[in-house]
Design a protein around this nucleic acid. Sequence first.
DNA 1: CTTTCTGCAAACGATTTGCAGCAGC
DNA 2: GCTGCTGCAAATCGTTTGCAGAAAG
Lengths: 149, 149
Amino acid sequence: MAHPDDDESDLHAAVDIRLRAAGMRNSRSRQVVVDVLVRAGRPLSLPEILDADAELAQSSAYRNLVELVDAGVTRRVESADDHTRFELHESLTGHHHHLVCTSCGRVEDFDVPDDFEAGIDVMVDAAESQGFRIDAHRFDLLGRCARCS
Amino acid sequence: MAHPDDDESDLHAAVDIRLRAAGMRNSRSRQVVVDVLVRAGRPLSLPEILDADAELAQSSAYRNLVELVDAGVTRRVESADDHTRFELHESLTGHHHHLVCTSCGRVEDFDVPDDFEAGIDVMVDAAESQGFRIDAHRFDLLGRCARCS
DNA sequence: CTTTCTGCAAACGATTTGCAGCAGC
DNA sequence: GCTGCTGCAAATCGTTTGCAGAAAG
C-alpha cells in the first residue's frame, strides 16, 4: 500500500508465476480480469466485472475466474444476493474479512484485530472433535451499505 | 434439549403464533417442512428436505421455506455448493455458527464461546465507520466433513 | 364460503459448455 | 505450428411463478 505501483507490478509478476505453474497462458483477458479486481479493491460479481471493462466476453470471464481460482489467483466469495463474487486470492492481498450488504449484495473488505483471529484458531479443535477437518474460516458482518441505508 | 418433547411442542406453538401473526395459515406442508428441519438439527438443502419427506412437492417446499423466512420461522444459510440451505430461525434455536464442508456442502451447527461473541460486537463500530449499518454476522469454519475427509 | 395454499408444468436467470476460429509461445 | 484460449450460442440446473383445483378457517 505504501508503494502502489511497485505493489501492482509485484502482483502481476506473482500472478504470472502462478499461471505458468498451473500450465496456463497469461492471456489478455486473464490480465484484464485481474486488473479489474485489483482496481476494485473489493469482491466483484460477474456483471460488475463486465461493466468495468467492455472488452470482456461473459463466458470467457466466468471461465477465467474459475480457472484462476484453481491457479490460486482468485477466490470465490459468497454474498447475500444471487451472484457469486470473486476477489484476488488472500495470499496476494492478505487475510481479511467482509462487510456484506444484505440489500444489494455489495461486499467490501474489512480487517479485524489480531487477537480476534487468534480466538478463531482456538475454536478449530472443538470443531474437529465434531468430525470436520478445518482449513479455513469465513467471517462477515452483514448489514446495509452506505447506498442502501 | 433436556426435555425434547416439551421443547418440540413449545417450538410448534411458537411457529403457530408467528404464522398467525404474519396472516399465514398453518398448513400441513408447512408443518412438515418445520418438522423436517427440527429433526435434522442442521441446515438442509431443498433436495435433503424432499428426501426427508416424500409427500412434499418441490415448488411448495421452496415457496414455504421463503415465506417462513418472512414470518421469522426459518433462515437462509449459505454453504459452499450450489444449494441454498434453510434452518430454523435463531430465535427458535439459539444463536450459533456453522461448520461447512467445502466438498459436499453439508452444514452442521457449532457453538462458540461467549467471549468470542463479545469480540464481534466490538468490531461493529469499526465496520460502521466504513459506511455500513451492521445488524448481523456470520462466522463459519470451512473444511471437510467426516464423510468427505 | 372465501381466501390462501398446493402441485404441476412452464418460465427464469445465473452459470457452464460445445465448438469453430484466433492467439500465445 | 501446435495447443490452449476466446466468443458465440445453446444447454444446464437451481429456483421461481402462473394457474386451476384443493384445503384452511
